[in-house]
Amino acid sequence: MEPHEFKLTEEGIKAVLPPLEAEIMEHMWRLKVATAGQVYEYMKEKHPDIRRSTISILMNRLCERGLLKRSVEKGRGGMRYVYSITSTREEFEEKVVQSILDALMTNFKEATYAYLSKIKK
């Protein structure tokens, strides 16, 4: 996933993802693989009014963003979708930093170099 926006006022991955999607991803990075139902049970504790539809829509949105992938699993409980992460949190953060620095180097090369060398010292 290539982030297209960076919100300076938000913390952590909420700077590049909408809040609920960020929360889902935080949880998914811990679980690695989960169903929408399992994520719903977790999210319900923090957001009692949240509905299954919201979680399903958001998890499929995360699939569209390339952060999750969806597969069909046939198990004892019948057929269901199982979602899994496509990259670790570290890989994702690395990609975010790369994208931002690439954008800064393209648009503000001198200032970016100057600031990075200042940080190095």
Partner: peptide
Amino acid sequence: EELKYYEDLRVGVKSSTLPSIEPTI
């Protein structure tokens, strides 16, 4: 009711009570 909620969330996402959700299903 749940299917209606799903559709509304998908269609009327801009005026939704969850401003961060923008599903482009």
